[in-house]
Design a protein around this nucleic acid. Structure first.
Lengths: 198, 198
DNA sequence: TAATTACGAGACTATTGCGTTTCGTAATTC
DNA sequence: GAATTACGAAACGCAATAGTCTCGTAATTA
């Protein structure tokens, strides 16, 4: 099978370079962040990684496959805040998200990925399993702790709460272009606290 | 000036066809909805409109300009609901939005436009001035009436309320892929009502 | 040391799509 | 009716880019 040839190099001959493998994935992320998904050219990725294109295509059959692999590695380091209060925790995690959106590259990355997701199930799966899941898990922990503390209703619709928290920032970043500032962060966190108060 | 030549045809000679003009704009919208912004080819738009490409480029210098013009015409007909209660109005306007997202073409359109907006200020301006503004105006009227009725706080942050209403649906449509159903619509409307209760 | 596979570099092929130009024809003004 | 401009159709030039292939060289196994 073609697939296994790509994934399992033969035992004989020069072994594949792990350095090249990692460099390609890193380069893919860098280039995508710089110019977006569509404009990220395989030539540019290979050049940035310091490898030939053949070395790239020996590992990934298509750009789609490479990008899907690379995206799963964009794991923004996330820490679950512990400020002592649910309000403080919620605000802290939202400030974290705010900082993410303040990086223009991240916003450009996101808008490109959204379009790519609509066309490619493979990309969609990678993005959802990658940093979308990571961010939501962090927020979920904060909410569940809030429920345990008694600051949020026991029957809180967690999915809904997560969407209420992340939605407004996404709207501003992708659609309206309005500023994402401390006022918004506080407003969103407080609105969720009020809406799901016991 | 080149610009004025494009916009103001000369008084002498065969006049420009208004039918062609309108057909091109309509075709642009159809094609963009079908295949997305990036994949919408000028050849396809001209063919769909039944005109030659020269006829298109006589009116718009670039694809960007044409699309910007066309997008402003995508004015989904919106009616401000009047159910008698603020809760009913909010739910009605959200159901309206839900129906929009249930059209796969609209979701595809939106994801493509989001990416295009990030690259082109002209497109961004058109989208924001077009259906983003239309939808938000409708929701704003519902909220302002809710304030007048005394169902919402007098000092309600209207921008924030609008983002809380539209955000969750956008998150699901573009990022998580979760279903957008009546439960979500009710949850969002009720959450905003609770969060901004007097 | 022979066979095998990977390496970086880059030429090459094929496709796509924007925007221009050319063609013969149609509509309008002077 | 002469001049001018627009029309639809289609060919064309040009740039970008995905993916393949070739080259001489390097690293590994048997």
């Amino acid at each position: 099978m073609e697939r296994s040839r790509l994934e399992t190099p033969a035992a004989v001959g020069r072994p594949r370079s792990r350095e090249a493998h990692d460099a390609i994935l890193r380069a893919a992320i860098v280039v995508i962040r710089e110019v977006g998904y569509d404009a990220a050219a395989m030539d540019a990725i290979a050049a940035r990684a310091g490898v030939g294109k053949a070395t790239v295509y020996r590992r990934w059959a298509t750009k789609e496959a490479l990008v899907a692999d690379a995206i799963e590695r964009i794991m923004v380091s996330l820490t679950v805040p512990d400020t002592g209060s649910t309000r403080g925790d919620l605000r802290a995690v939202m400030r974290d998200t705010m900082r993410m959106y303040h990086d223009p590259q991240t916003t450009a990355l996101l808008s490109g990925l959204v379009a790519a997701m609509a066309r490619s199930p493979q990309i969609a799966k990678a993005v959802r399993g990658g940093f979308v899941a990571a961010r939501r898990d962090t927020m979920r922990q904060v909410i569940e702790r809030g429920i345990a503390r008694g600051d949020l209703r026991r029957n809180t619709d967690i999915q809904l709460a997560l969407d209420l928290l992340s939605g407004p920032l996404l709207v501003r970043a992708l659609l309206t272009g309005a500023t994402i500032d401390g006022r918004l962060v506080r407003g969103v966190a407080d609105a969720v606290l009020t809406a799901f108060a016991p």
